[in-house]
Amino acid sequence: MAATKHMNHIQPYSAQSGTMIPTPFRKFLRTCVLWQIIRFIAINIKMTILILKSHH
């Protein structure tokens, strides 16, 4: 029961039950400052590469 507490609001056979729900750890990482600083750098690198590829 405890392991699926984050899915309490999902009803069986509903549209919501057909998709993936993030685990509490995944949700924690979304606002974990240290992890997000790393992601901030990574996303900026990705976006810079994208911009460089897009100018003609």
Binding site: R30, V33, W35, F40, I43, L50
Partner: peptide, 14 residues
């Protein structure tokens, strides 16, 4: 490799 997505605080800062 150029099509990516993620949700988090870093996105908000950006």
């Amino acid at each position: 490799n150029g099509t990516t997505g993620e949700i988090g605080l870093a996105g908000h800062w950006i």
